Amino acid sequence: MISVLLVDDDQELTGMLSQYLEREGFEATAVHTGEEGEVEALSGRYSIVVLDVMLPQRSGIEVLRRIRAVSQVPVVLLTARGDNIDRITGLELGADDYVPKPSSPGELVARLRAIMRRVQSAGQPTTEMIKTGALVLWPGKRQALWHGVELGVTSTEFSLLEELARSAGQVVSKKDLSLNALGCPLTRYDRRIDVHISSIRQKLGPRPDAKAWIQSVRGLGYLLIAE
Rank of each mutant, 00 (worst) to 15 (best):
A144M: 00
S121Y: 05
S121H: 07
R65Y: 15
R111G: 12
R188W: 11
T29H: 09
V4G: 02
D10C: 08
E40R: 15
L51H: 03
A110L: 13
D10N: 13
S103G: 06
L55T: 12
E162I: 00
Q19V: 14
K175L: 15
R81F: 12
V75R: 06
S59T: 13
V99M: 02
D9T: 04
D83W: 01
R65L: 13
T156Y: 10
E40Y: 10
P102K: 09
R207P: 10
E38W: 08
D86V: 06
L224F: 08
R191C: 03
L64Q: 01
G25I: 10
R192P: 09
K101T: 14
P139M: 09
S121A: 15
S103I: 05
E227H: 14
V109D: 12
S103R: 02
A165C: 10
G205L: 11
G133D: 03
I214N: 00
G37F: 08
V70G: 07
G183M: 07
V149W: 00
L223W: 11
S3L: 10
G90R: 01
V39E: 14
L108M: 02
E128W: 00
S121K: 04
W213E: 02
I88C: 05
G169E: 07
L64T: 08
S18G: 07
V195K: 13
R192C: 11
L164D: 03
K131M: 10
S103Q: 03
E107V: 10
S71C: 12
K211W: 12
D9P: 02
I130H: 13
Q11E: 11
F26L: 11
V153C: 03
A210T: 13
W213M: 01
S47W: 08
Y20S: 11
T187W: 02
L17S: 08
S216T: 14
E36V: 06
L220R: 15
S199V: 03
G148C: 09
G169W: 07
E157W: 08
T14A: 12
F158P: 02
E227G: 14
W213H: 05
S43Q: 11
A95I: 09
V76S: 07
T79L: 03
R111D: 12
L112F: 02
P105D: 10
D86S: 13
N84Y: 05
L42I: 15
R68I: 12
V76F: 09
G15F: 08
L145S: 02
S159E: 05
T29Q: 11
